[in-house]
Write a protein that binds this DNA or RNA. Structure first.
Lengths: 155, 155
DNA sequence: CCATCTTTGACTAATATTGACTTTTATTAT
DNA sequence: ATAATAAAAGTCAATATTAGTCAAAGATGG
């Protein structure tokens, strides 16, 4: 979302393509060259910004003619989105991943902006800070799963 | 009165920018260098002078391209009732008392029915169950206080 | 003198960047 | 066909680059 580091810039570049097309297929080394970073940074960008929590799936192939393909998850219906997210959350989730989930809920209009803000406030790091990161992530997961399950009844 | 110490000067510097712009994004170390103070003093200034009670929200990111962003928000009217509720909650709150707080929010139209339901789902007993009643009540309190503070302003 | 506010710095945490090494797949040579 | 080589992408840990926390020391005002 920002533009001050290369990972954000690469993220924005890819998302711009994905705004028009359902998927984008890249050569890792080409993108690395384009932005003058080492190839593995492309993996870092994908791993931190194009997760299933964010609403993306990624496939790749090595060897000659290899590629990385990023695809926007196809949303069949709200229940399927909720199931996918609940599954992705599992037993624990970091704040960063949590924000991704909230972003996906918002993008699919499963919550309003206000509701997303409240959910964000309820699950941010300061709020859940109890000096035990593992437990914090577990509680965050419980809260989010509870909310998502609640949303099932309304959709 | 202002300007006698560096914290006041830094505060004034930031507020001058915020008089023109809705938000300001800084690099902590840049500002620290500019005023020749240690970086953590910037945190002190923010913590003492840019609180939500004063109408500011703060976000930050660490790592390469990190930043601190201060945003001026419009405070709403029902501040007394929020303060009262926050006070009443204190450091811990049971599920029963939590429901009462949510009821008060609803009655005063500080949240919609949907938002109240989400808040309920987030703070109910099953959701927060971790086998430690005291800690559960503490976490419930933190969540609710965080939400109440969020309700101080319009996004 | 005491209480509160400010300043400082050592330590911690989160995020980004880099590069060495591995794995997979395709192509080429025999 | 098979083996060797090349051409991709993946993994992981080290390093770099930020910001956060906390408590001690210093300053200030009543």
């Amino acid at each position: 979302m920002q533009g001050k580091n290369l990972s954000d810039i690469i993220e924005a570049y890819l998302k711009k393509i994905l705004a028009d097309d359902e998927k984008v297929e890249i050569s890792r080394s080409d993108i690395a060259n384009l932005f003058d970073v080492v190839p593995s940074q492309i993996n870092y960008v994908i791993k931190t910004r194009f997760t299933i929590q964010n609403g993306y799936t990624v496939e790749s192939k090595r060897g000659g003619g290899g590629y990385i393909r990023i695809e926007k998850v196809k949303l069949l219906d709200n229940l399927e989105i909720l199931d996918t997210l609940i599954n992705a959350i599992g037993d624990e989730i970091s704040q960063r991943e949590g924000k991704a989930v909230i972003g996906t809920l918002l993008a699919n209009e499963l919550v309003t902006v206000n509701e997303a803000d409240l959910l964000s406030a309820a699950t941010n790091k300061q709020t859940l800070s109890i000096g035990n990161k593992g437990l914090e992530n577990e509680i965050r997961a419980k809260i989010m799963v509870s909310i998502l399950n609640h949303l099932r009844y309304k959709s």
